[in-house]
Amino acid sequence: MDRELIKLEDIKMYFQSRVGLFKTIPIKAVDGVSVSIVKGEALGIVGESGCGKTTLARISLRLLKPTSGRIFFEGKDITDVDEKELKWFRRRAQAVFQDPYSSINPFMTVREILEEPLILHKVGDRTERLELISKALADVKLTPIEEFLGKYPHMLSGGQRQRVGIARALILKPDYIAADEPVSMIDASSRAEILYLLKELQEKYGIAFLYITHDIATAKHFSNRIAVMYLGKIVEIGGSRELVNDTLHPYSHALIEAVPEPDPSNRLRERRVLVGEPPSPANPPRGCRFHPRCPYRFEPCDKDEPELKEVKKGHSVACYLY
């Protein structure tokens, strides 16, 4: 097996949410997720709003400390390490954020934004830093470079801003990048452009890549493996092509079924859809979390939670059908 770069082990993240004056209830945003990414691999995480994707990504970057579970980076347990001792990790693990408008400081120029990580990690002198910045800008195809160095974020389009965000993530030559819906705020016709860029850089530099999205179609094209999340759990994980073409979990089925493709015959038939909406993560159903909406449920489903188990090589599912 390849060496795991980042490994999450039975991660649980319960947020305390206040109800009424004195009572708090736990929101089980992530509830027992184990997953790992090897060097140079792109893992896509798909799932509907609120299923815990962002929370998982933030934990993988140790921007959040999980309620329980362990985070390993190159075999080192970084779950409880003090922020001050984490500088080496901060240099090697980077993030690309969803919102290109709020993820970069509007008061800094492109150059300052890209120089900040270098300064913080004491990389090079002024001229060397400028060289690295120019190279990063060239990598994300923001050329001519001189033109962009002095620009403020409000002078850039959404796509250009997102490229700056990607350049910032790349400049320290990280081994791991978590990208949380990096293209959802970008116009549909330009999304693929950014995704290709990310993929190219990821392959070029052998970066392990976590791609969070609710768009399973792009996940299929831009990641090696896909994990489908439902209510804080991974319900199915496998190679992207296999997962899409040979779907196992009923929820994954429904998700794929719901994605429209440009086909004129669509309008002539109703889609098979799931009934209802996902329940609240504060109070997930017992047994299989999906069972109240599952068209195939049978006796064991509402008793115990099914384990995620490998049913084919590299393809695991948490469902009693298998």
Binding site: L86, R91, N105, E116
Partner: peptide, 10 residues
């Protein structure tokens, strides 16, 4: 997000 971004670059 820019705060989180700053934290994540250390």
């Amino acid at each position: 997000q820019f705060i989180e971004a700053a934290i994540s670059i250390g």
